[in-house]
Amino acid sequence: MAADTVRPILSIRDLRVTFQGGLGLAAAVDGVSCELQRGETLAVVGESGCGKSVTALSILRLIPSPPGRIAGGAIEFDGRDLLALAPEELYAVRGNAISMIFQEPMTSLNPVLSIGTQLTEGLIFHKRLGIREARERTVEMLRLVQIPDPEARLAQYAHQLSGGMRQRVMIAMALACEPRVLIADEPTTALDVTIQRQILDLMVELKERLGTAIILITHDLGVVAEMADRVAVMYAGKIIEQAPVDGLFDHPRHPYTRGLMAALPRLDRLSASGEEGRLNEMPGLVPSIYAMPPGCAFAPRCPFATSQCHAEEPAFEELSPGHYAACWEAGRLP
């Protein structure tokens, strides 16, 4: 990839995040490294609890502490380590250079402040705009996210908007300061399918218009195929496969990724009689983060596991240009 020669806008190196739980110290993110290029969309996929949201929250240092703690690593944005910033420097980055869209559009807006107040807030303190300018810019943003009658919306409150509309407001809020990186943590999970469609189209359009790099966290592979340039698959706190989106879908190298793909329900696999075949499932459960197996974390569920898999952790290796996977058997898989 040509992008390898360009300095990435965001690079995460060996990130470790631990949580102090009732059963001891658990590593929710265990040595994650990845890079995000300018204007690129990186999808992070994996099942619930694999550490994808924690990784995302760590970038803006939003991990609730206690019990959470960023135990190691570095997150470099534009040459600065975000983990080493003073609180004021951090406030200046949040919502300005890097912003975030959350999963819960229903509750991510303050119920007692008007939409206008919340939307103009960031512009006023990040961009030092006056109230009038901030309102004009906000109306523009609301128009951009296709909210009808934006001037009237400014005076409304969250409960007066529908779910899809609230998520658009959240997106407008996240994009108001024209961030260089947008972190979207399952931005469409809580929405119904038609609204999902509109929100995703909107994100693609905004990305093209503003040149924002996006980290898209999701467990919906359909969304990934459509949106992403590159995909990182996470399992039990680690990235186990990372590849350009076509490479990953055409030729997944890690057995876990293959399992994910196989578990997708597909209309073209319906039998001639219209009967649905049984969905493929992956046997077993994610290991408890309090009791990680010594070797590959996926080995207990993996149909290809050997004795080496159970004993030693596989290295994260480049198997073909830009395609990395952490699997001892990757080269020998059928």
């Binding site: 406030y91 949040r94 919502g95 959350f102 991510s108 402040l113 807030e121 960031g122 809020m173």
Partner: peptide, 26 residues
């Protein structure tokens, strides 16, 4: 612990703003 508080933090609000603007009215 409500999401709007986290969202306001992610927008870049410092603690005085979080307390006065977002917390107090609630």
């Amino acid at each position: 612990n409500k999401p709007y508080f986290e969202a306001a933090t992610a927008i870049g609000a410092g603690w005085p703003r979080l307390v006065v603007r977002h917390l107090l009215p609630n």
